[in-house]
Nucleic acid binder design. Structure first.
Length: 875
DNA sequence: CAGAATGAAAG
DNA sequence: CTTTCATTCTG
């Protein structure tokens, strides 16, 4: 549908080739998409890896296609769509849910509902989206410096020449943009986009296509890359700090730059890619391993392999090699400068490792591997910064010498590399307690660095980062032993530091993997999953918020922080740690769905998952004990309904998984792309991009209707406008608040009428149609602000009443039944852990709001609210 | 293709 | 302030 427009455009432009009719629109360049993923700091590494994997997967076959796609992307105008704003993101993410709930509702109606939800959405949550949107925008802008949102007041694009010109204008980038001119975009607009693209000119090429091509090229001639570019990390300080997205953007831009330097930079990036690809290709053989050595690429390759399940043994071998004389090998191959650089770090690393070994002898060599892996991850986050000042200096010096000139570009490549090299110290530093880390001098260093990075990413938007604690957590990732890591996570949870938990997860995985020789490779994969990162992101974002920082942005985080001290513990922690998606399947051993099962298999194979499972199990138990089940139940119910169609919730959980698997496998069909799929399927690259995009999306919290309901509860009708108040609603000023309410009420009524007017909507009969009802219903259960609600309720249309009561009672009953634990498993199976986590978090949140301490039992207060659940409205 | 929503950007 | 446009998809 939409595609039509675009397609037209494309055809007009000359895409005509029209290879992909519509191709969803990758809003962002693939790079951006990846970046999005990166959002979560942790994930960054993973994401990158994933990206790489994808690239690899694409392999030669993919390259061409990818290129084309990239071209499309580049093809500036077309691809580059203005970044979605927060609301759109929200809509995109939740529309499916809404639709599920209200199948009959058409999009418009759904949009309205979404708007309502949006209004109700807690500011914090909103912020997440806004932040995301901002990041997107920033990344987008970076990628397309000259991008203009509006076609300069031209006439509407549609009218005369629908697309071509207007769009071009829109996207047209000012050539002046110092950075990259995405030549393709400019030139292409009228001349021949594809040509540019196709062209080997790396300089002209933009974004991924460039990288891909380069990568291939590099494969062919690895030397070149090494020679031209070095892993210059030097400049990077700034770049480093930047969020991954930016980095990607920069990279892409750099690649696109015609300037010589840019070329060099490209080479470096390309080189990396090449390495990756080479590694992957070689993976079959032992050699690749050597090369990769410590490099992130290598790790990625390993991950890929692991995912495939092809050769764990090889990886082991590699690892062993690395452990012994990884450097030497590297040197041998070490045409690449970066590797050389690595060596130095290696030294530092060795020392560090020694320390680490002391701390954790268990893993022994494996530990090294793990460390490496961890390092990679760390890179994302703190990466370079984390390193000791000494190391950094050395690196910098080297870098400066080698390639100070390539700032942007160097960054990406260098960062990765550095990461791999990065001092194992982190592990060392990592203490069981996030806080603890801070105390340690070493840790202190890290945090600072971390902050910087975060700042970069967020600084733009949020002046204040409070993520420090979280950062510390991340640092901790490197936990030495599995057990320790677990403990650490637990403790962290107890403390309420969500970020820490997340961090802990990864470490755990690593650890485990390390423990089980093979695991290492496998480990890499799972950890990479972005899910975790999401959570992290969330936490970060929240942290960013000054006011709310205390509260974890994510539900999960909230739950963890609050609940816990007492009982909850591990389970919950585990969840957060484990990526919601990934975790899901494992959590329910027996019940895991078939879909999940696939993922599980992989995971299980890895072995590290065990811990996750256990954690999940614990979490699950916890949830049950606390009474979260009720809420879960509600979700489940919803899910069932939806299941018929397509489960949003399932999608959440599975989505990532699917995407993940997809990436590895490289298969086409992903749920996401339903529309685009057919066309895009042919092109893996596009799919990849899409996937990534989705992932990013997924990273965004998807709130179950229940959530909204709850939210609604506090501020029932305000719905739209006041809605924002939801959680803390009353606090604002009551006076205005009430007035607002009235307004809202009117609006609502008007809307209602409006709907009524429309033939479709049956008034009472179907509660479904009125999503709004939910709100009303919610209103019924007043949490704290009873008065307003009551008033509202009274004033509110009768419609709600009738439905509400029934529904409410219904809900309550359901809740009661649900409370019984036994069912949980089924539920869990049904829902992804993420969903559970959300539920738990939500409940926690409520608790928090109330300021009532969580009862160990948990059931208590929340439960009543839980009833809110509400899915009642649906039916 | 219109249109429902929100928001960012540009005029 | 107003206009565009981003996403989504039924009618």
């Amino acid at each position: 549908m939409k595609g039509s427009n675009r397609n037209k455009d494309h055809s007009a432009e000359g895409e005509g080739a029209g290879k992909r009719p519509k191709r969803k629109c990758l809003q962002w360049h693939p790079l951006l998409a990846k970046k999005l993923l990166d959002f979560s700091e942790e994930e960054e590494e993973e994401d990158e890896e994933e990206d790489i994997d994808k690239v690899q997967l694409l392999g030669a076959d993919g390259l061409e296609q990818d290129v084309a796609e990239t071209e499309d992307d580049e093809s500036p105008e077309q691809r580059a769509r203005r970044p979605m704003n927060a609301f759109l993101l929200f809509c995109k993410r939740h529309r499916s849910l809404v639709r599920q709930e209200h199948p009959r509702l058409d999009n418009r109606g759904a949009t309205k509902i979404l708007a309502d939800w949006w209004a109700v959405l807690d500011p914090k949550e909103k912020q997440k989206y806004t932040d995301m949107a901002k990041e997107y925008k920033d990344a987008f802008m970076k990628a397309n410096p000259g991008y203009k949102w509006c076609p300069t007041t031209n006439k509407p694009v549609k009218s005369p020449t629908p697309t071509v010109n207007p769009r071009k204008k829109l996207w047209a980038f000012p050539s002046d943009s110092s950075r990259d001119l995405p030549s393709p975009k400019k030139t292409k607009t009228e001349e021949m986009p594809q040509l540019n693209f196709g062209m080997a000119d790396p300089t002209q090429m933009g974004g991924l296509s460039m990288l891909l091509l380069a990568g291939e090229h590099a494969l062919g001639t690895p030397e070149i890359s090494s020679g031209t570019c070095r892993p210059d990390v030097s400049e990077s300080s700034e770049l480093r700090q930047k969020s991954p997205l930016f980095q990607f953007a920069e990279i892409s831009s750099s690649t696109s730059h015609p300037d010589a330097p840019s070329k060099q930079c490209q080479a470096s990036a390309l080189f990396q890619f090449a390495e990756i690809s080479s590694n992957t290709s070689q993976l079959g053989g032992a050699e690749p391993v050597k090369r990769c050595g410590k490099s992130a690429l290598f790790q990625l390759a390993e991950m890929c392999l692991a995912s495939e399940g092809v050769k764990m043994e090889e990886s082991k071998l590699i690892k062993a090699k690395e452990a012994d004389g990884g450097r030497i090998k590297e040197l041998e191959k070490g045409k690449e400068e970066r590797e050389i650089k690595m060596e130095k770090p290696d030294e530092a690393r060795l020392q560090k490792e020694a320390d680490v070994e002391k701390s954790a002898k268990e893993n022994g060599r494996d530990s090294k591997e793990l460390r490496n892996f961890e390092e990679l991850r760390m890179d994302d986050i703190m990466g370079i910064k984390m390193e000791d000042p000494k190391d950094i200096k050395k690196e910098e010096l080297e870098e400066d010498q080698k390639c100070s000139h390539f700032p942007d570009f160097s960054y990406s490549a260098s960062s990765k590399i550095i990461i791999s090299d990065v001092p194992s110290r982190k592990d060392h530093l990592c203490h069981p307690h996030g806080i603890m880390i801070i105390e340690d001098p070493t840790t202190l260093n890290k945090p600072e660095k971390l902050k910087k990075k975060k700042k970069k990413s967020k600084m733009d938007r949020h002046g204040n980062d409070k993520s420090t604690p979280k950062k510390t957590c991340k640092k901790r990732q490197s936990s030495e032993s599995d057990i320790e890591s677990v403990i650490y996570t637990i403790e962290a949870v107890a403390k309420g530091d969500w970020g820490i938990e997340k961090l802990g997860e990864t470490p755990r995985k690593k650890v485990r993997t390390s423990s089980s020789g093979k695991g290492s490779i496998l480990d890499a994969k799972p950890p990479k999953k972005k899910v975790k990162s999401r959570e992290k992101k969330m936490s970060k974002e929240k942290s960013s918020d000054t006011t709310k920082e205390s509260r974890p942005p994510d539900f999960l985080s909230i739950s963890a922080s609050k609940n816990i001290p007492g009982e909850v513990p591990e389970g919950i922690k585990a969840e957060p740690l484990t990526p919601t998606e990934d975790a899901l399947p494992p959590s329910l051993p027996g019940q895991a769905k078939p879909e999940d099962s696939d993922c599980h298999r992989k995971i299980e194979t890895c072995g590290f998952r065990k811990s996750e499972r256990s954690c999940k199990g614990a979490l699950y138990k916890t949830l049950v004990s606390e009474g979260m089940l009720t809420s879960l139940r509600a979700n489940v119910d919803r899910g069932k309904r939806s299941s018929g169609k397509g489960n949003s919730s399932d999608q959440e959980g599975c989505w990532n998984e699917e995407s993940w698997t997809f990436n590895q496998i490289g298969t086409s069909g992903s749920k996401k792309f339903k529309k685009t799929k057919p066309k895009e399927d042919s092109l893996l690259g596009s799919t990849k991009l899409d996937e990534e995009f989705e992932k990013k999306f997924n990273s965004l919290p998807q709130y179950s209707p229940v959530t909204f309901d709850r939210k609604c509860v506090p501020v029932p009708r305000k719905k739209k406008k006041t809605g924002s108040m939801s959680s803390e609603p009353t606090k604002t000023s009551k006076g205005p608040f009430q007035s607002q309410k009235k307004n809202l009420f009117h609006k609502i009524v008007s809307k209602y009428k409006h709907k009524k007017e429309k033939p479709n909507v049956p008034e009472k009969g179907s509660g479904d149609k009125w999503s709004n009802k939910q709100f009303f219903l919610d209103a019924i259960h007043p949490t704290e602000d009873d008065k307003p609600k009551e008033q509202l309720q009274r004033s509110l249309p009768k419609v709600t009443e009738a439905g509400c009561n029934d529904e409410c009672s219904h809900n309550r009953e359901a809740a009661e039944t649900r409370s019984s634990t036994p069912e949980m498993p089924a539920v869990s199976a049904f829902f992804s852990l993420a969903a559970l986590a959300e539920v738990a978090a939500m409940e926690n949140v409520h608790r928090g709001q109330r300021s009532t301490p969580l009862t160990h039992d948990g059931q208590p207060k929340e439960m009543p609210q839980a009833p809110v659940l509400i899915s009642c409205a649906d039916q």
